[in-house]
Design a protein around this nucleic acid. Structure first.
Lengths: 237, 237
DNA sequence: CAAGCAAAGTGGTCTGACCGAAAGTGTGGG
DNA sequence: CCCACACTTTCGGTCAGACCACTTTGCTTG
């Protein structure tokens, strides 16, 4: 029986197993495509119950490290397989719902961020905003959706920082960090609908940029909200 | 026994349960911080084994939606917890700057909360809102400022819950829990200026209440924002 | 009213079992 | 010799019941 008592004893056994297997995968002891030992064998060799192993398997599934087939076994996943199909997975009602909620929050949040950024952005932040905006213009097309999404995120995050508003910034960070996938999904949907990056989005980015530069806070809020609302509408059927 | 056969039958039961619970969380049926039914009760009410429920719980844990404690139960997690951590002493809560920012955030946040509450509040929530509103009316004066602040908080939190908007609810909770002192400070200042509880606040509460009851979402947002803006103005010198 | 203790509630783990799907095995006929 | 078919084994999915450890609750007692 293999010992896995190394970590603190107050950790769930399933998590210890999951960590152990994940370590083996990352260390290359288990190669992508390779079949894992059956749950019963793992349970036996580790000296734990099968349920503990099963919960560990669920953890690794959710981490995207393994795939299991009823009657077939569990297999180490190639992390690059399906890497480019990420946006369309999770097309269930829940993720659609979450995407809606994120965009609804962004509408007011980025409105405020733009408002305060117009009022309080420092010269340095104005320069960085200009630089980032130029980069977005130059690259324009010919980029992957993912890169566009990241550029979009950087632009909006810069605005949030420029707002000098602790709470707006904090919420923006959480939203961007935790729900990037949801936002990315929105962008993908919008892209698939209109064929390519809607030119209107470029115009809206320009309006936001100009309003902030002109220190026209009210206008900045208005166009920022319009921008998010437009993106959200693109997503809806 | 509750039916969860809706999705394709080839999906694991645990995933169906996880999706169901996630839906309830996003829809605001389970509020951040709220305790979930015990695994045994869930298993019983859904007509499945406890192991299936346990695996669903593991899924939601990995999604960061719930937290479970040995012997304590599982709780819906507030995803925004811990992100507003900033070295902040208690007296900082009285800083003019922070109070301003809290009220600025509240203005948009409670606007949205009222908007969605008008659209989606359940009958039960309408009743509770009515009851709470009645209590505020009856007690009117003769209370300490602290109690008024708490009643105010309860009223607004009830609206946030009625929004059935996971993100709006989460942010409201964090704001109310973390910055209650700051909000209390605002109210104190307003009180000291005008001598007593401004009657206009009562009128505004009534407007918000009525708009939600009338399911007039746009009006609800407008008057809620006016209410916060008015309170904030009272605070300013 | 407070402190301490017993009971109930709850998650964590184990055992054993059955089902259906997939994979492996052997046998028969071409 | 190879292929097709049926049988057996293996495997994951689900269920039932049990026991342990920890937390919460509530009641008793000082």
């Amino acid at each position: 029986m293999i010992d896995l008592e190394l970590p603190a004893g107050d950790e769930r056994i399933a998590d210890r197993i999951a960590r152990r297997l994940q370590g083996q995968i990352l260390a290359g002891e288990i190669v992508p495509g390779e079949k894992l030992p059956s749950q019963r064998k793992l349970a036996g060799s580790l000296g734990v119950s099968r349920e503990a192993v099963r919960e560990a398997v669920v953890v690794l599934q959710n981490h995207g490290l393994i795939e299991t087939y009823h009657g077939g076994g569990s297999f180490c996943k190639n992390l690059f397989d399906g890497f480019f199909e990420l946006p369309m997975r999770d097309q269930d009602q829940n993720s659609h719902n979450l995407q809606c909620q994120v965009m609804e929050m962004r509408e007011v949040l980025e409105g405020e961020a733009a408002y305060f950024a117009a009022l309080r952005a420092t010269d340095n932040q104005r320069q960085r905003l200009t630089a980032e905006y130029q980069r977005m213009l130059e690259r324009g097309s010919g980029e992957t959706t993912l890169k566009k999404a990241k550029a979009d995120l950087t632009f909006h995050m810069l605005i949030a920082e420029s707002s000098h508003h602790f709470i707006v910034m904090s919420i923006s960070q959480v939203l961007y960090n935790k729900y990037f996938n949801a936002m990315y999904g929105v962008l993908s949907k919008a892209l698939k609908k209109s064929g390519n990056y809607p030119p209107k989005i470029g115009v809206q980015h320009d309006q936001i940029y100009q309003a902030i530069m002109d220190q026209d806070a009210g206008e900045a809020r208005k166009v920022a909200q319009q921008h998010i609302r437009y993106t959200r509408d693109q997503m809806l059927d």
